[in-house]
């Protein structure tokens, strides 16, 4: 029998083979992603905002004078009347407090990204664990987790956040955790559990058990990898809902943040310009358009990923 194995096996070639397989699957999935077009559009928008976010500190330390352009405490001394319409020095004008709108927009982009990605990561980590554990163990573990999910789903997220921010003062980081926990233990967990249910009944789970694999091994090696495509999809959707919730809460003035797109609209509203869009369009459009664009961008990427992981949706 020893003759069957002609060449001695070199472990390093195993890793090379794995790497080759991984890169092949990335290439294939990227091809599918590109073919959906809307995903590319979404990626382009995301990349644009990422550039804006990265460019802000660079501009602040080079071209823009902090005294004038600081997004929170700057004041446009060069304008006689605030809010000032767009000009060469202030491409998107200034707000009622004399601060540069483009600077605010770019400064906020970074925190929107951090908020969205943190909320999404928390959601996916919790949701995947909840889904896999509830589906695998079943019984009372499942009952407890799913009743908890019912409670999370029933909770009106925005109202809860309003109460919480009134009570403890919520910043971006806390908001991201809250959204992540609400969604992870709630709707996302339920969706991922339903997917996990179709995995736990597969014979390869039995095969792993009869090989002697423990619960941890089976969940980690067999269930979670089969949930990940769906997890990533929900990650994208959570980014959207996190950015949107942030905008709503800052608009209501309930978030303890220095600057954000929602807060920009809030400033406009409290200065009484909200209903004069036609005249003071630069106060409303940059922020609201950014919220809309970035939310839709993540949604488009999510939809496109949906087609990648869900072959039935693919149009050939």
């Amino acid at each position: 029998m020893a003759t069957v194995n002609a060449q001695p096996a070199v472990p390093s070639s195993v890793w090379r083979a794995r790497l080759r397989l991984a890169s092949r699957s990335v290439r294939e999935n990227w091809g599918l992603f590109v073919r959906t077009r809307i995903g590319l559009l979404g990626l382009a928008i995301i990349a644009m905002y990422a550039l804006l976010a990265v460019a802000h500190p660079v501009l602040m330390s080079t071209v823009w004078e902090p005294r004038i352009y600081d997004p929170v405490i700057g004041y446009a001394f060069d304008e006689t009347k605030q809010p000032a319409p767009p000009s060469l020095k202030h491409p998107l004008g200034t707000d009622p407090l004399g601060r540069d709108i483009l600077s605010q927009l770019m400064f906020s982009a970074r925190s929107e990204f951090l908020l969205g990605l943190l909320a999404a990561t928390v959601t996916v980590v919790i949701g995947t664990s909840v889904g896999a554990i509830a589906a695998y163990f079943g019984g009372w573990v499942d009952t407890i987790l799913m009743r908890l999910a019912d409670i999370m789903i029933m909770m009106p997220a925005i109202s809860v956040l309003i109460v919480l921010s009134a009570l403890i003062g919520v910043e971006h980081f806390e908001l991201a955790l809250l959204i992540g926990i609400l969604s992870g233990f709630g709707a996302t967990g339920v969706v991922l559990k339903s997917q996990a249910l179709s995995v736990v009944v597969k014979p390869y789970i039995d095969a792993a058990r009869s090989a002697g694999g423990g619960h941890f091994h089976i969940i980690l090696v067999h269930i979670v990898p089969n949930l990940l495509p769906l997890s990533f999809l929900y990650m994208m959707f959570t980014v959207t809902s996190a950015i949107f919730s942030e905008a709503v809460l800052s608009f209501l003035g309930l978030l303890n943040v220095r600057m954000s797109w929602g807060l920009m609209i809030h400033t406009t509203e409290s200065a009484g310009y909200l209903l004069q869009v036609a005249e003071f369009w630069w106060l409303i459009f940059p922020a609201s358009l950014s919220i809309t664009l970035l939310c839709s961008a993540f949604y488009l990427v999510g939809r496109s990923l949906d087609e990648v992981v869900n072959p039935r949706l693919r149009s050939r």
């Binding site: 597969k202 390869y204 039995d206 089969n226």
Partner: peptide
């Protein structure tokens, strides 16, 4: 069905 489709 008896093999995990994601494993070699």
């Amino acid at each position: 069905e008896s093999m995990n489709p994601r494993r070699t």
